[in-house]
Amino acid sequence: MTNAAAPTLTKKDFVSDQDVRWCPGCGDYSILAQTQKTMPDLGVSKEKFVFVAGIGCSSRFPYYMDTFGFHTIHGRAPAIASGVKLANPDLSVWVITGDGDGLSIGGNHLIHLLRRNLDINIVLFNNEIYGLTKGQYSPTSEFGKKTKSSPFGSLDRPFTPPSVALGAQSTFVARTVDSNTAHLQASLKRAYEHQGTSFLEVYQNCLIYNDGAFSHVTDKAVKDDNILDLKHGEPMVFGKEADKGIRLDGFTAEVVTVGKDVSADDLLVHDEHDQNLAAILANFTEDDLLPTPLGVIYSEEQPKYEALMTEQIEAAKEKLGEGDLQQLIAGTDTWEVT
């Protein structure tokens, strides 16, 4: 996918001439800017990028990238992106979706792309609300949330996107936040580098319909006490004073104070290749006492679908010879009548 001869690209090369139509202050602006900043560093020539989106606020994204882009059908970006990738595996294909597009109407398409493991990068903007349709509860809205479509509180238990992805056999699951530009850029890079389907959840603030949904991980005053910044091979330490840690009691994670009752050696060490640990980490967000993990929750190397497909075709050719269309049409059970 890398192209050594490609001219040096800059952020400007990825900015299209279209007016951005998100609300002022929307978290989407940062995700767009960080993506435009990150793309030139990937060593891919510009014409090889394809951004495929479904429908929703997030899914207008391709219009603002000066690359090939397709604003497709609600929830069906994974299906169309799969076709784009299989037709031309040399492309760098990105799916842009949201919590509504990706987890409501498109939930089924999403899980099958994840389990097939095509080398496609999924960026799911999670604002825990339906923004484009003006504020109804989404599959990630919290239980009891009062919205226009749930005036007495939502009765739906929400999805935790990384748990959904892990359940669907995803080979790469990560989480980042719109306002943490450095972390967002690094996460996009990691998602790109992963050979297989990458699932990146981005906490994204909807200023109009769900402002502050992620203030616990964005407000300077409290965020350090609420973010668990995952680093492979390092003990899980967090807090403003870096004095809190995560320890496992059986399969249950608990917060401990480092130095007081435990030493750093007793803390859980992050291993992004451990699927069981990933499942525990993904569930942290359901527990108010635990911090929110950011970074790479899980990654594993598995064969890419397109590679398996190419191999299968080559193996079949080797065994059966090059295909012959005329023979195929004639079949084996035909004869000529005179």
Partner: peptide, 22 residues
């Protein structure tokens, strides 16, 4: 996709005649 110099966006919103912009 892949054809250099022909990067463009298509989609389900009404297009402008010729330019293809929304």
């Amino acid at each position: 996709p892949g054809m250099s110099g022909l990067e463009h966006r298509i989609g389900g919103l009404e297009r402008e005649h010729i330019s293809g912009n929304i």
